[in-house]
Design a protein around this nucleic acid. Structure first.
Lengths: 137, 137
DNA sequence: GTAACTGCAAACGCTTTGCACTCCC
DNA sequence: GGGAGTGCAAAGCGTTTGCAGTTAC
């Protein structure tokens, strides 16, 4: 997503556009590896040395409210931020924790079949597959 | 799972069978709502008033090592314990946090189709669907 | 100008750890 | 009897909160 779009989303909600916010949004939305708050902090500190972890958490909470990201809790107690709200599979390496998205052909069709007898209205979903990535094998 | 079986699993690994361990294992393995450590603690305190949360965490860690449960991290930072290691869907209420398992007909067949083009070896999976349960609607 | 935002540090909640005491085998 | 397990309390760690100072508008 371009800066222009992000700025519009923030302004439309009456939120102020700060360099910290814009940088955090741009970074998270561009990533497909679902970084943790700390990973985002480490990455942004290079270009924005005075940014604080607290501000990043506040921005992430904002992004959640704006439906720009989904939070994924993991068993090590950390939360990772996924900007892909569409149906997809998270391939999670059980050794290094790296994640990347996988979108099979026809996932929507197959998914619909899976839920055809489910008598509740889903608000969202999370699909993880655990494996060892090529670096960790 | 019966006490007898649990005792065998523990003994086979050279682990001691204590009332606290047996109670924790029996409770978790009988549940389908994936309780948190604190929920297990509250439930067991009634019959075992001196049991401690620390012991429950240690037993849960043991059960994970014995492949009796899977840990599920959630975005509120809590971990819940799922004794169902087979392919299934966790129906998670976004209001009250209650979970129950759902196993569609032919889930294995459909799942296999979903992964037919995936060129990695899955070690396990997690499938959540978020919704509002009947009590929270 | 002022209300919202930042950075810092303290607080918070869940989980893990350390240790003296206890109990299974 | 001895080593593993328990209960308690302290420590650990990711996240949230509160507040004085700063900045977008």
């Amino acid at each position: 997503m371009e800066s222009k779009e992000i700025i519009k989303i923030l302004r439309d909600r009456g939120l102020k556009v700060t360099v910290q916010r814009l940088a955090t949004c741009k970074y998270v939305l561009a990533r497909q590896d679902h970084p943790s708050a700390d990973q985002i902090y480490s990455a942004l500190k290079i270009d924005y040395p005075t940014i604080s972890l607290g501000t990043i958490y506040k921005t992430l909470s904002l992004m959640k409210d704006l439906h720009l990201v989904q939070e994924l809790g993991f068993k090590d107690g950390t939360i990772r931020y996924d900007p892909n709200l569409n149906l997809h599979i998270n391939l999670v390496c059980t050794s290094c924790g790296k994640i990347h998205d996988y979108k099979p052909e026809n996932i929507e069709v197959i998914w619909k079949k899976l839920l055809s007898n489910l008598h509740v209205k889903p608000e969202g979903q999370r699909v993880d597959i655990y494996y060892k990535c090529s670096d960790c094998l």
